[in-house]
């Protein structure tokens, strides 16, 4: 099994909402001071999904990450978890893209790598919540895609996949190669082992410029966008909270119930 996993470096989405800031002059998010970026969580679930398959049937996992200023300690996480190779698309030309130009560049790299049975992405990245790159890669490469995946079993050139629905899941059979987008129901990503971290430290990622992949800079990054962002803003939080007090927690609780009754909320 040759597997390709797409991951991306993002601002830590678990940072407290109060630390979230926008620079309105540039329409950009200001990374919170003193907090390291992370691998986008759903990308990490995709790595976990690939590792589960590798545990079951063996295979090779190549992680690809497109971005600028990628911190090696951050983007090497798939390697320390157990992936085999890391390809970084790092060049100014990749910068400022949208789902379209990102999927376009990733698809070109996957084509260059050439050998793949399964391509795994996260269901949506935690920064722009676009939820499209996996489906886009599938369209560009002419592959089937299954989104919102919670379980994957592979055998005999086919995969049996559980896809989330609003009230449960469906089991889908697909021929390989195929693209899947992974949801958190796949199970918590494993922690890197000490051995994994040491191995990742020693491994140099492959860095590819657009020219290395045969990409025209006009088709990628900001130049290749199909969408335009006109405005980025923080919603106002309305309302003043009323803290319900009491002599004891039990009394506060009773006061809350009375308050809700008075306000005719139940």
């Amino acid at each position: 099994m040759n597997m390709i996993v797409c991951v991306k470096q993002v601002i830590d989405p678990e940072a407290p909402p109060a630390t979230f800031k926008i620079d309105t002059s540039t329409n950009q998010v200001v990374p919170p001071a003193g907090m390291s970026p992370v691998i986008d969580p759903y990308g990490e679930y995709a790595v976990e999904a690939a590792l589960k398959i590798k545990d079951a049937v063996g295979g090779k996992i190549t992680a690809i990450s497109l971005g600028t200023n990628q911190l090696r300690d951050v983007v090497k996480k798939p390697l320390s978890m157990g992936a085999d190779e890391l390809v970084l698309l790092e060049d100014e030309a990749y910068d400022g893209g949208d789902s379209f130009s990102t999927a376009f560049a990733l698809a070109a790299v996957i084509k260059k790598i050439g050998e793949y049975d399964l391509i795994l992405c996260g269901r949506e990245a935690s920064d722009w919540n676009a939820g499209q790159v996996g489906s886009g890669i599938a369209e560009i490469l002419g592959l089937p895609s299954i989104t919102l995946v919670k379980k994957i079993d592979v055998a005999d050139g086919k995969a049996r996949i559980e896809r989330l629905t609003s009230d449960g899941y469906e089991v889908i059979e697909v021929s390989l190669p195929a693209v899947v987008t992974v949801s958190n129901e796949i199970g918590e990503p494993r922690y890197p082992t000490i051995k994994g971290i040491m191995g990742a430290k020693k491994k140099d990622p492959t860095v590819w410029t657009p020219a290395d992949v045969g990409l025209d800079p006009a088709q990628i990054g900001a130049a290749g966008r199909k969408t335009k962002m006109l405005k980025l803003f923080q919603p106002a939080h309305e309302g003043q909270v009323e803290i319900i007090e009491g002599e004891s927690p039990e009394e506060s609780a009773a006061n809350l119930a009375s308050k809700l009754r008075e306000a005719k909320i139940f």
Partner: peptide, 8 residues
């Protein structure tokens, strides 16, 4: 976007 921290 950003999990609802912002709108675009």
């Amino acid at each position: 976007v950003y999990g609802g921290n912002a709108y675009a």
